[in-house]
Structure formats: structure tokens, C-alpha cells
């Protein structure tokens, strides 16, 4: 993994979709930097000017501000397109933890899960998150093309005997008029 990709992942980019999105934002910012501002290194003003002109939000501004100055030195007006393609290709080969969750998570929750995954599983891992409300709670995990169900349904099935016993005891109690 190159330093540029590592740096990119370090900007709280945990989701595979976020990687592609951030590479897109970076491409547009470098175009602005090289073809509009005609400078090679950004600063707060150029980022703010870019965000204002291209109508980007706070999260995008925050992403650009977190990139160090050294990160931009590898990009030149002539080579930044190719470099970005290399980043994208390299990101495609990163290990992916696919999760199916019951609700749409916000960046905060995704960041926490991604941080945990990079600490406990792999430091360059990316998340690929889909939503399925039928899971109810917990999540389903796809790892190495194998699905592991850690949703509520699995928990219920794991405790099926206990649940059935509880219901039967309850029915007996009803029969006995208790």
C-alpha cells in the first residue's frame, strides 16, 4: 500500500464508497488547484474558495484540510490523473469487510466501526456497508465471500430452545389458570 493511499485512508475514510467519493473530490480539487488557481500546493484559502465555488460541504472541506501538504507534492499538473487512477486501482485491492446492517448509519458510527476493524482485523481494511431492515439488530458479515449471520435472527435461533420452553411454560401457566 502506498503512502498516498495510507494517508487517504487515514482521513477517516473507512467505507469503500467513501474512498471512491474522496478520490473524486480530490480529482476535482486538484483540477481547481492546477487549472484555476495555478498553484501546486493548497492552503486554507484555496480549500475554502474551492468549497464555495463547487458548493462542497463541511465534511468535504474537513477531508481536504486533513490531507497533509506532503500528500499533494506527489501530484503534478501533468501526472495527477494517472496518480489518482493508481490510487483507485490500489484501493480496489484492499481487503474489504462487507457488512449488512439494519439501518443507515451516519459517518460517526461508520468511523467507529472502521476504526475497530482496522485495529482488530487489518489496518488497511475497508468497509462495504449495505442496509437490510429485516436483520432488525446486529449485522451480517461477509468475509472472504462467506456470509456470517450475526443479526438478531441468529441470536434468536441460537436461543430457540429457551424461547420455546419459555412459551410452553407460559401456556401451561395459562392452562392451570395461574
Amino acid at each position: 500500500m502506498t503512502d498516498e493511499l495510507r494517508t487517504l485512508l487515514g482521513t477517516q475514510t473507512y467505507n469503500r464508497a467513501d474512498v471512491a467519493y474522496h478520490i473524486g473530490v480530490l480529482k476535482e480539487f486538484l483540477e481547481y488547484l492546477f487549472f484555476t488557481e495555478h498553484v501546486s500546493s493548497p492552503n486554507q484559502d484555496t480549500i475554502a474558495s474551492f468549497a464555495q465555488k463547487k458548493e462542497y460541504g463541511e465534511q468535504d472541506t474537513f477531508f481536504l484540510e486533513r490531507l497533509p501538504e506532503s500528500f499533494f507534492k506527489v501530484f503534478s499538473q501533468e501526472s495527477f490523473y494517472k496518480k489518482l487512477e493508481q490510487l483507485a486501482d490500489e484501493a480496489k485491492n484492499l481487503p474489504t469487510l462487507s457488512l449488512v446492517v439494519p439501518v443507515v448509519l451516519k459517518p460517526k458510527q461508520i468511523s467507529e466501526i472502521g476504526t475497530w476493524a482496522r485495529e482488530k482485523i487489518l489496518d488497511n481494511i475497508l468497509l462495504d456497508i449495505d442496509v437490510d431492515p429485516t436483520i432488525s439488530a446486529g449485522c451480517q458479515i461477509v468475509w472472504n465471500d462467506i456470509l456470517y449471520d450475526f443479526g438478531l435472527n441468529r441470536q434468536i435461533k441460537n436461543h430457540q430452545t429457551e424461547i420455546e420452553n419459555t412459551v410452553h411454560n407460559f401456556m401451561h401457566a395459562i392452562d392451570n389458570g395461574k
Binding site: 439501518v103 466501526i113 446486529g138 449485522c139
Partner: peptide
């Protein structure tokens, strides 16, 4: 939800 997901991952 995040806690339950984390619990599932753990």
C-alpha cells in the same frame, strides 16, 4: 445499533 454491530463483530 452501532453497539449491537460492534458486539456482532467482536
Amino acid at each position: 445499533h452501532r453497539e449491537l454491530i460492534m458486539k456482532a463483530l467482536q
